[in-house]
Amino acid sequence: MTRLERNKLADKLFKVVAICATAVALVFLAALVIDLIYDGAGRIDWSFITSFPSRRPARAGIIAAIAGTFWLMGLTALFAFPIGVGAGIYLEEYAKKNTFTKIIEVNIANLAGVPSIIYGLLGLGIFVRTFRLDQSLLTGALTLTLLILPIIIITTREALRAVPSGLRQASYALGASQWQTTYSQVLPVAMPGILTGTILALSRAIGETAPLVAIGALTYIAFLPESVMDPFTALPIQIFNWVSRPQKGFAINAAAAIIVLLCITLVLNSIAIYLRHRFKKRMRW
């Protein structure tokens, strides 16, 4: 065998190995989905969706968990969106290049890498113990807000950076102030990008379990929350609780609840992808 032939053989072999490596991830994903549907799809019916948790797996449902998850999603969006976008606008449009700005930037990059359980300990120490908000929806939402703020800030900045500077200059030339320019010209153009990032961040937030466990969220709730000060449970917490029990019936419930959770995140992600698609179309200058 000549050296050329050997090299070509190595090339082909490597290609096969690399395809297999890529396929592992896809096979894993397929196995996960099939396993979940096999275990849990049969369990999902109207009474499972609309029942409260129960000691008997066959009678337990996820209505309290679904309600908690939607409450958390709404409240977290309410807090995280304005603050995150505001911080993004400040850093991208207003901030001068000085040491303090640099500190904020490095700080945000590092916050994005802090494990979510640490945010749970922060929520426990500050919101639960210091502010005495107990295990309320407000505590959960504030904790999740701090967790996803870095993601929203980073994507907001990327979206703002993609707006051509000619747009800003044209607006200034017409006598608009900096805020008028930002609010009326730059933000509308960047909005689809910002919304995409926010929705992806929210879909991460509603899948988070660890910080909610750390702040002490309950697992057994037999009523629907009516105000932000009410205790709550959420889908991931309910799933975790069911997975941790030895009875087979609860494992089936967990699989069914996971399917519901994945469907919610899937819907959110689809909205994000749709917005990104529209964004691409509109960005022709």
Partner: peptide, 26 residues
């Protein structure tokens, strides 16, 4: 304009406060 800039700055500064909160509590 000044008020808006201050509010936006506070939003950005919250990230530093978060870090201080984490380190402080721990």
């Amino acid at each position: 304009e000044g008020a808006i800039q201050t509010i936006l700055f506070l939003c950005a500064a919250l990230s530093v406060i978060t870090t201080i909160g984490i380190v402080g509590v721990l």
